[in-house]
Design a protein around this nucleic acid. Sequence first.
RNA 1: GCCCCCGUAGCUCAGCGGAUCAGAGCGAGGGACUUCUAAUCCCUAGGUCGCAGGUUCGAAUCCUGCCGGGGGCGCCA
Length: 551
Amino acid sequence: MSLRTDITRAIADARDRAVASGALTIPGGAPLPAIGLERPAQPEHGDWASNAAMQLAPVARSAPMRIAETLVANLEAPPSVADVAIAPPGFLNIRLDPAWVAAQVGPIREAGEAYGRNLVETPRRINVEFVSANPTGPLHIGNARGAFVGDVLSRVLTAAGHAVTREYYFNDFGGQVKALGASVRALRAGDPIPEDGYRGEYVKEMVASVPDEVVRAAEAATGDEVDWVYGRWASEVQRLGIEQSLAALGVGFDVWKTESSIHDEGWVSRGVERLREAGYVFENEGATWFRATSFGEDQDRVINRSNGQPTYFAADIGYVSEKFSRGFDELIYVWGENHHGAVARLVHAAEALGHDPDAVRILLYSWVRFVREGEAVSMSKRSGEFIGLDDLMREVGADAVRWFFSSRAFTSGIDFDLELAKKQSSENPVYYVQYAHARASSILRNAAEGGTPPDAGRTGELLAHPAELELIRHLLDFPDTVAIAAERRETHEVPRYAYELASAFSAFYRDCKVLTDDASLSSARLALVDATRAVLANALDLLGISAPDSM
RNA sequence: GCCCCCGUAGCUCAGCGGAUCAGAGCGAGGGACUUCUAAUCCCUAGGUCGCAGGUUCGAAUCCUGCCGGGGGCGCCA
């Protein structure tokens, strides 16, 4: 499937043969360690290197160098491999056959958009829920990270071959909706906004456009219901705005789910009933509780409050059932780390409902600290003090923002300096990658005008320059990059890869003139340019970033 | 008090199921444009990988303790 898996498998086979023939003994039948394979930094260490012998040393109770020799003696190398050298303290340094490498241009080019796709042997049905910001105001820059982490992760999982459903969950049921409604009511009446109300400009804008039927419904209502009437209307307005903002960012969703629908369709009551039958629910002090302590948590969790209102957790119980009922193999939740406290109870509730707890994966991304000229910018919808996501995209640019968020591990807390981002916008590495794509496109255009067609038929013999081979080796890395990112549910390796590919292409451009008097060589190099252009486009597509034909 | 992330070059961050890892981008200094796109390329500078122990033949990477930053520990979401 990929070079990495080919070579790894060959080493594993060599090990197994050695064990079968008695050349390698594993005392006590100890479990075999995984075979590590990496791209060495120094070229003299080959194209790939494996630490398999050193990993095996403790379980085989033998010297790494001797094991390495045994592995090499039993190795049936794939055609891609030219030779395998042993280096102290026991590395296998693997060198690829340059002619084989050069001959891969054709297959990569033919695969085109399909290259680096459908890599997994067993596709899974995966639900990715992300953003899920409350519909109490516009998206602000605090929501940006979740949006791009979820979006890029979904793209990578899809590319790897999984069936991904992207989902947004609207909390339209909780007290924050009532608080939003109370703010609208207060502003309309000229009263002060309640303590827990919302103070943003957008609330005032909404107040100016409350439809007549909403006003009539509110006038007909009594007590708290007045706030709910305004709140339901206002949250629906915000919800539409959020959908538009996300669409403008290129962040798409397949399913928009509301908390109220989870309640209305009975998922919550049925879920709680199932938990009750399983013995995980009890009543105490007028409230209904989930016995989280059965799963090692330090306290039990309230499902229904003593005032009769369900908690957010109640909806989570219903929602997790509802999601599994749609046949997903895995549920991914992209949450901000402030939800850390809710992780254990959700996983345990899923387990108590009879689901595989490992199928519920919660990815917590760390907070972004937004800084403007050294000062932290506070972000609060209630105070109305925040920077809109739409504003950020206008200020800094969508491609630069996407690159910024997708090139960092989501577990790292990061600083986002708004002034610096604007200043460095033109220096952003994303443009470097796009530029490489534009440059490749330009060469292909020139060739087409000059009547030189790309031809990958003889690249195996015609392409041998170090810069050519290095570029092709990078192209060959793409499927592994996608597969590893998908497997780890970590996508920040993709921008890094894209940058390195662009860099290898720049070196090639510097060292190898594509359009020359030698028609055969030109055609072969054009095929390489075309393959590179396609892979750059594929990598950028994984990030949701455009691949321009000219800049 | 307990739990979870994080601490690596001036800045922003990779690397962290050990070895063949001291890395990238930006910034700083120097150089290359009658070009298949200079939004590019080449060179230079720089870090006791927070601190202290431990495990190991070998630790940025694993363990323990401290220090520092962030986030949790609600009948809030």
